[in-house]
Write a protein that binds this DNA or RNA. Structure first.
Lengths: 332, 332
DNA sequence: GTTATAAATGAAAGCGCTTACATAACAATA
DNA sequence: TATTGTTATGTAAGCGCTTTCATTTATAAC
């Protein structure tokens, strides 16, 4: 593999000159430029990004840590980030944390050791303190989907409370009065916030909140089915079910059918996240869109501004979810 | 950020010694080792992977090029690859090619310029010749989901013909005799192969193939719906529909319902790929599993063997898809 | 034709490591 | 104690670039 030295020899110029034509950061006469370009082409020269990074102390790449490489949510997030960086000719180095503290830390170490110019993290297991400490370091960090007050300007997150509110309000607007709710695990902040929004929507519309109409799930499909059965078995009547995510809604829908009820007439169902799945279910699931791709774009823009002096406007940290109505909710 | 030099000074030893304790590749007395380790801890030293790569000419990372960062298929693929490398303490650098020749080439260039020790590629737009040429280079390449005869030992691919066969046979085994088929775009080799398998299954079971019962889709949902309507409108009767992927099956299922038919009684539907979606549809879609995650594992194992001298057994290039029966097919 | 000034180029140090080779330290043997 | 063989450690070159600073060359002004 040809090096800059080979190019310089073939072109009959110095290393510095070759470097200049590569980086276009200093005037080079047209004649020499051509000689160099020709030599590069002839040798099939590819600059060694590793050596460039070492010498310039800038890797032109940003580290992204996601919990998983698979799944709609992370896919959209990575996709949003990558799209933004691609046009800026920056690159992305991805690592997976698997929601385990040890692995998340290792992932971050890896990205730092690769001298990423900035980090965009989706982490769950690592502590607030660790992240606050990390932010004090020299390398810029953006957190997606996590809110920590002390470093709030580095957090890009969703207004989950509003999302919970919107979801329930959508159902109320269709005339439902008896509304059950399958929540996410209470130890997760987003689950708490969504539930809070649900309660606020009820209150603002003069409906009372009943403990019997809430079930704590774990965001997985099976817990949705389990939740619906549990709620149904209490015989506390309800005509609509709001779920804190789409997977649980799917599980719940199976259970609804299992009870011989039809949707949306006997039971309206509302999801959350607007996972691709929502569009493939039957009936197509109404949901609250989680604009994770846009949030990825935003995180990338912040990095572009902070690290690469790219001018950026309209930066904001908190995103509002939006209602997506499909077929799973009926008028009552 | 502390360097190896800072460590060596603090520990009162030479750079070389520090390097030795990091890499454990030469004997260092326990006493000095401890001094070095202490110094590292005290400084919070993190080796600079960039400098290591440059000096050692080995980056301990392998480049992965996918078409998209989102979507079940690529997510599973990346996940499989990453899982395998994680236990070997190798890392993955991911780039996206977006199925465009230019971007695919740029992605490959990027990965090479980052001096990845090997490449795992899922490319569609780039020519066979380009890839054959690439394989002649010094850096090992594995191709996923593509078969090129001249470099077949570097290709990890699916037996699509068998998949098409299995899909149709599953339907035949349930007693269906009149079977329609929505194919992928004919310019794609996998679409051709799946269709071929379909025809073989018909032939082997004494059924004749009718041109009127095939529709060429484009693998997207909408074309499934369009396909079913077109097939249905010919009035050529069929009781089962085999689709060359799950998205088209989903579109078709919508169209089936649109015609007031119920599934699976009036119409059995078979998918292909076993996308997560299949499990969320109603009725749950029977499909042919595309073991892309395992194929990712396999590609990673091949790299581990070729580049990192890790002993590996049971390597194989071609994978057989497997039938996954769910609720979308009825007995006839 | 000088001289002053700007533009183009080159020489060389340095980025943070690895590693071949040289040297020092130590133990074992005669 | 001198000699040899081991083992531990240090020295310094080099990986492929960037970048500062010095030097050369071209251009303009007088």
């Amino acid at each position: 593999m040809a090096t800059i030295y080979d190019v310089s020899v073939l072109a009959g110029v110095s290393l510095a000159t070759v470097s200049r034509v590569m980086n276009k950061n200093a005037k080079v006469s047209e004649k020499t430029e051509k000689k160099v370009l020709d030599a590069m082409a002839q040798l099939g020269y590819r600059p060694n990004a590793i050596a460039q990074s070492l010498a310039s102390n800038c890797s032109n790449s940003v580290g992204v840590l996601v919990s998983e490489l698979r799944g709609h949510f992370y896919g959209s997030m990575m996709s949003g980030i990558e799209a933004e960086f691609r046009i800026a000719h920056k690159h992305v180095i991805i690592a997976a944390g698997h929601s385990e503290e040890q692995l998340e830390k290792e992932g971050i170490e890896f990205l730092i050791s690769r001298r990423c110019d900035a980090l965009i993290l989706h982490v769950e297991a690592v502590s607030d303190e660790y992240l606050i400490e990390l932010c004090k370091g020299s390398i810029p960090v953006i957190l997606i989907n996590r809110y920590i007050e002390q470093i709030e300007d580095r957090c890009v997150h969703l207004n989950n409370e509003l999302g919970g509110y919107i979801a329930t309000k959508a159902v109320i607007d269709q005339g439902h009065r008896d509304i059950a709710y399958i929540a996410g695990p209470y130890w997760k902040e987003d689950a708490q916030n969504r539930l809070h929004g649900h309660k606020r929507a009820l209150a603002e519309h003069g409906l009372t909140f009943h403990e019997q109409l809430v079930f704590e799930g774990d965001y997985r499909e099976e817990s949705g089915a389990k939740g619906f059965r549990a709620l149904h078995d209490t015989n506390f009547p309800f005509s609509a079910l709001v779920c804190a995510n789409d997977e649980m809604a799917s599980g719940a829908m199976d259970a609804v059918r299992g009870k011989g009820l039809s949707m949306p007439n006997d039971m309206s169902v509302m999801g959350f996240d607007n996972n691709v799945l929502a569009n493939y279910m039957f009936p197509k699931l109404s949901s609250v869109d989680y604009p994770i791709a846009e949030m990825g774009h935003m995180a990338a823009k912040m990095v572009l501004k902070q690290c690469y002096q790219s001018p950026q406007t309209n930066l904001n940290n908190i995103f509002d979810p939006k209602l997506v109505l499909r077929d799973s909710i009926s008028l009552r």
